[in-house]
Simulated scan of single mutants.
Amino acid sequence: MTDRQLYNTKNLLEHPEFRILKEKPAKGTGRNIALTYDVDHVNKFVEKPRFDPAPGQVEVNVRATGICGSDVHFSQHGHIGDMVVRCICGAGHESSGEVTRVGQGVTEWKAGDRVAIEAGIPCGNCEFCKLGRYNACQNDIFFSTPPHFGTMSRYHLHPAAWLHRLPDSVSFEEGALCEPLTVAMAGIYRSGLRLGDGVVICGAGPIGLVTLLAAKAAGSIPIITDLSQSRLDFAKKLVPSVKTVLIERGQTPKDIAQKIKEEAGMPLTLALECTGVESSVHAAIFSMTFGGKVFIIGVGKDIQSIPFMHLSANEIDIQFQYRYANQYPRAIRCVAEGMIDLKPLVTHRFDLEDAMDAFDTAADPKSGAIKVQVLD
């Protein structure tokens, strides 16, 4: 099967060896199980066929997969923008693992190699791919984004060209966390962050926290905001020097911005907005000094308003990001060299057969989870 046929959920559903499991799978069987969500917002275990790798493909035993907010959102709400769950779709796109088999013509990988799995496979032929901005490819495959099956399964076939070698010093858990790290690094790279910049990071969720780690490593002086004191406390453990601002419900964006500026004690030239929430975007805008920039990493509602004249009168730029491109090797180097420590971000771990419990934990704000991972 070609890559596009292999990863299309509809083709998998029609395969005679694909089946929906009525009971929780037993541990120790070695079956190629996977966790999915469907149009009725129900999570289900399935068993996938274990295909032989085609030419140019590699089979990976997926050893660690993080649960992303987008996975939970697809499961609970059935869509993100125009990306709609129309049938069963496999979860997971933050993954790493061990090569088990290689297809014809694959010379750069062998069984036993440790790899991080880049989740997006571009077409390679369009204008954006040729420019190196392959995150803009309109004909790409992105795992766990309908209609393409995710990587939260025991065995996953992947194009050899879109795997990245993990040094022995980088664990499978860290390798899986390189996916959200690439999101943060893409934002920092494009935002133009400079050494010594005062930076406000809006949101202390998983992306906000990994952005904090990357922004600090890049030489900024960060301050971070959130509605949850426990998440701000977690941020302080990650980066003891970071200043924190607790957002109280009912505060106006201007009040929040004033609080941010007072706590920062210096002009803020850059905001890395990691929530996508309109009020948070507004607070980021009002906290900027003249000529600052608000770089929006978070994903929010389709239509939002902005304080247009404040932006105009203060020459504040707004910039956006869609996924990432060309970041994985840099992210792995930063982890391997000890510049960024991702290990504390994993707060909850579950076996693959308990992936449904992992999803419930990731979706529950009361769980205190930062990053939930499913391990095999």
Rank of each mutant, 00 (worst) to 15 (best):
T9N: 12
N11V: 06
E23S: 13
P25D: 00
G28Y: 11
I33Q: 02
Y37C: 14
K44E: 01
P49V: 06
Q57K: 05
E59A: 11
I67Y: 01
H73S: 12
H73F: 06
Q76N: 12
I80N: 08
G81V: 05
C87I: 00
C89V: 15
G92N: 02
V106A: 12
T107Q: 11
A111P: 04
V115H: 09
C129Y: 08
N135M: 08
H148E: 10
G150N: 04
G150P: 03
R154N: 10
H158K: 10
P159H: 08
A161I: 00
W162V: 01
H164T: 02
H164K: 04
H164D: 05
P167Y: 12
E173H: 09
E179Q: 08
L181G: 01
M185E: 11
G187A: 14
G198S: 07
V200C: 15
V200N: 09
I201M: 14
G203W: 10
G205Y: 08
L209T: 03
T211C: 06
T211E: 07
T211R: 05
L213I: 12
L227Y: 09
S228V: 00
Q229Y: 00
A235T: 06
Q251T: 12
Q251W: 15
D255W: 00
D255S: 13
Q258L: 14
I260Y: 11
K261E: 13
A264H: 13
T269G: 14
A271T: 13
L272C: 10
S279I: 10
S279F: 07
S280A: 15
A284P: 00
D302E: 14
S305V: 00
F308G: 00
A313W: 10
N314K: 09
N314W: 07
F320I: 00
Q321I: 07
Y322Q: 10
C334Y: 13
M339A: 14
T347K: 02
D351F: 09
D351Y: 07
M356A: 12
D357Y: 06
D360M: 10
K366N: 04
G368T: 02
K371N: 02
V374A: 06
